[in-house]
């Protein structure tokens, strides 16, 4: 069965690129446009991995990670942050909140795919 990955990002173009890349590789992708939307959608479905932006309206990435980690059924789920190089501090906070790792924007689709495949192997 195809693994399900959620991408939470307020940028439509990035979300689409992530979706398209992962779909091509056979993953099922669920898009969320901000942290709140992600939390809403996560409530009802099974997800194998979360890719989240850090700066988002309504509930930012850090809050989303903390919330997800507090849910028993997601306590071991891999969470990858999409960060920009300037956000070293945010990266640390994200790790402290329970993120598994990160990928630095800009990234190429194949880099994203390599990371996802590696973590979900």
């Amino acid at each position: 069965m195809a693994k399900v990955i959620m991408t939470a990002d307020d940028s439509t173009s990035i979300r689409q690129m992530v979706s398209f890349t992962l779909n091509q590789a056979g993953y099922d992708v669920i898009e969320a446009e901000d942290g709140l939307d992600a939390a809403d959608k996560l409530a009802g479905i099974h997800v194998d991995m979360l890719l989240t932006d850090l700066n988002m309206p309504n509930k930012n990435g850090l809050e989303l990670i903390e919330w997800v980690r507090s849910m028993p059924r997601f306590k071991f789920m891999p969470i990858i942050m999409l960060t920009t190089e300037a956000e070293t501090e945010m990266k640390q906070k994200g790790k402290a909140a329970g993120a598994t790792g990160w990928i630095v924007k800009p990234f190429k689709p194949e880099q994203l795919l390599a990371l996802v495949k590696r973590i979900l192997r």
Partner: peptide, 18 residues
């Protein structure tokens, strides 16, 4: 202010992606 910041942040991030 937050909205402004995020707008610039997204343009930066997505811009570099594409």
């Amino acid at each position: 202010v937050n909205r402004l910041f995020r707008a610039m942040h997204t343009i930066k991030g997505s811009g570099s992606m594409f």
